[in-house]
């Protein structure tokens, strides 16, 4: 463990907590893409199957349980509890265009052709594009509530910090995992446009609502 990865995990945890709080306190999931949240739940389920078979550390197991629980709690809030506020009309991204290519790619390019490893690889590829329905929805609605933009900033920062962690681990431990690195770079690049708008929103006129040009 290093400070970059710890900061990344905390940023990730913060993002999930911000999202849960936003939906729970506003009692609405307007502006939130349920499809992205489904992608994330699939990602953590496929990646954390080793929760019971492969003990790394108390921290690792605890965080996995928290991420899984929060992912499904978010799905419950969106699709059950506050279902009436779910914005079907703007959450229209075709997720099959994400699922099919990532499944094919995980079967073609992986470290080991075993079920657990292919599922891990699939979760890495899926996570890198899972935010697309959300970014697409924000661009369609043309704006994001400020709390949603904080969520996206924390979520985007988590994988950016992981990239620094991978650089550190390469030089400090000679460790690197190309699949995770390439997918992590793709994932972070997808946020660049959003990062720019989020950081410059202070200097733009309507600072309250962040408007993303379509």
């Amino acid at each position: 463990m290093n400070v970059f990865r710890l900061a990344g995990d905390i940023s990730h945890l913060l993002a999930i907590i911000i999202l849960l709080l936003k939906i729970w306190t506003s009692r609405s999931c307007a502006g939130i893409s349920g499809k992205s949240q489904v992608m994330f739940a699939i990602t953590y389920t496929a990646r954390y199957l080793d929760l019971f078979t492969n003990f790394i550390s108390l921290y690792n197991s605890t965080m996995k349980i928290i991420f899984l629980g929060a992912a499904y709690a978010t799905l419950y809030l969106i699709y059950v509890r506050f279902k009436a506020t779910y914005d079907h009309n703007h959450d229209t991204f075709r997720v099959e265009f994400l699922l099919i290519p990532t499944v094919i790619l995980s079967v073609l390019i992986n470290h080991d052709f075993s079920p657990l490893e292919i599922l891990w690889t699939f979760s890495i590829y899926l996570e890198s594009v899972a935010i697309l329905p959300q970014l697409f929805m924000v661009s369609k609605t043309g704006e994001a509530e400020s709390i949603t933009s904080h969520y996206l900033f924390a979520l985007g920062s988590y994988r950016a910090l992981y990239i620094i962690n991978w650089v550190y681990r390469y030089y400090a431990e000679g460790f690197y995992d190309l699949i995770a690195i390439v997918a992590g770079v793709v994932q972070t690049v997808l946020y660049c446009d959003f990062f720019y708008l989020y950081i410059t929103k202070g200097s733009r006129a309507n600072a309250t609502e962040m408007s993303i040009e379509a």
Binding site: D9, F67, S114, A180
Partner: peptide
């Protein structure tokens, strides 16, 4: 070879 891929990251 079946490398036991130990993923220690979240």
């Amino acid at each position: 070879c079946h490398r036991l891929t130990q993923h220690d990251e979240l």
